[in-house]
Simulated assay, not measured.
Amino acid sequence: LERLMDAGIEIHAQIVLCPGLNDGDELDRTLRYCEAHPSITSLGIVPLGFTKHQDRFASSYSDDWRAARAVVEQVRPFQERAFERFGRHTFQMSDEFYLAARLDPPQADFYDGYPQFYDGIGMIRSYLDDTDAVLADAARVRRTGDALRSLGLRLVVISGEAARDTVARFVESPELSGEARAIKNYYFGGNVNVTGLICACDILDQLETDLGRVMLILPEVMFNADGLTLDGYHREHLLTLLEERGARALCSSTAPQELLSFIEGDLGL
């Protein structure tokens, strides 16, 4: 790592924090190391994720809000000093930590331009801000909701358990009157609960067999570049299976602005 930094390479690093392994004093040591090396311009701190196949770690931060909050507080002085020195916060907690700690995520400018967005750092703040911006045009959202209702369609947007309440802020707004449906991840089990790791088998098992009059939106993030889920279903095959249950099954980004535009396009608005 130091050879890379000596060569002038900017580093975006990540800590996967494991209870009893690299937290506590060991986390302090790692944070001090990063603080001493300004070439590390962002450091993501994410909680351990484990599946039903692993039993080494009996607990996780998602099970203990006090432990999660203690980590957030432990990192805070490093964030403050980084901002004083460089005008950036550098040390970034994942969304999962704020959810587990029962804390609101920081404001957008805290995320330094979201350099680790796709590691789940700042996604919730971005979604909340996008929701506020879209709902400010209440007439537009209401027009879309009215169009769905006039066709007798009920909007259902699939989400992981972790993000369900955040997605619901937009999808279940009075103007749209849809439903954000959380899918529990039985395929991986453990504490896996993010939208990007949803598997087709869990969707098929947990959705009702009669999906008539439902516009069902699958999040595009659950498919890879080849259109496959982690359990090997192709996007088109999964959509077909859901259409056979009566759904108007579609795949889209679930970010509010993009989702609203997608639904408008599908309805010809």
Rank of each mutant, 00 (worst) to 15 (best):
R66Y: 03
M93Q: 03
F97H: 09
R248D: 00
R143K: 12
D146E: 13
T240A: 12
S126L: 13
Y61V: 00
Q116W: 01
I124E: 07
E10P: 01
F117R: 04
T41V: 15
G120Y: 00
T209N: 11
H12L: 14
L259G: 03
S252I: 00
D23Y: 12
D205C: 05
S94W: 01
G227P: 10
Q79Y: 13
R213P: 03
D130H: 11
D63F: 04
A70Q: 15
E264W: 03
D55S: 12
L269E: 11
I217L: 04
L155M: 12
T30Q: 14
H237W: 08
R56W: 00
V171A: 09
A100L: 00
Q257T: 04
T30P: 02
H234R: 15
F110L: 05
E264Q: 14
K184P: 02
Y186V: 03
A36D: 14
V194R: 03
P219G: 15
L204K: 15
A225N: 12
F78S: 08
L48A: 04
L250R: 15
V221I: 15
M215F: 05
S150M: 14
Y33K: 05
S159C: 10
N224P: 08
H89T: 04
A147P: 07
E236L: 13
L230V: 09
D104K: 12
A255S: 14
T254A: 06
H234Y: 11
H53I: 04
R76A: 13
G232H: 07
S94N: 04
L241P: 01
L197N: 06
E26P: 01
T254L: 12
V75N: 15
A225F: 06
A100H: 04
R102K: 07
G120L: 00
R66N: 12
G24H: 10
I203R: 11
G145I: 09
D146R: 15
V192N: 00
E73A: 15
P105Y: 04
P174E: 02
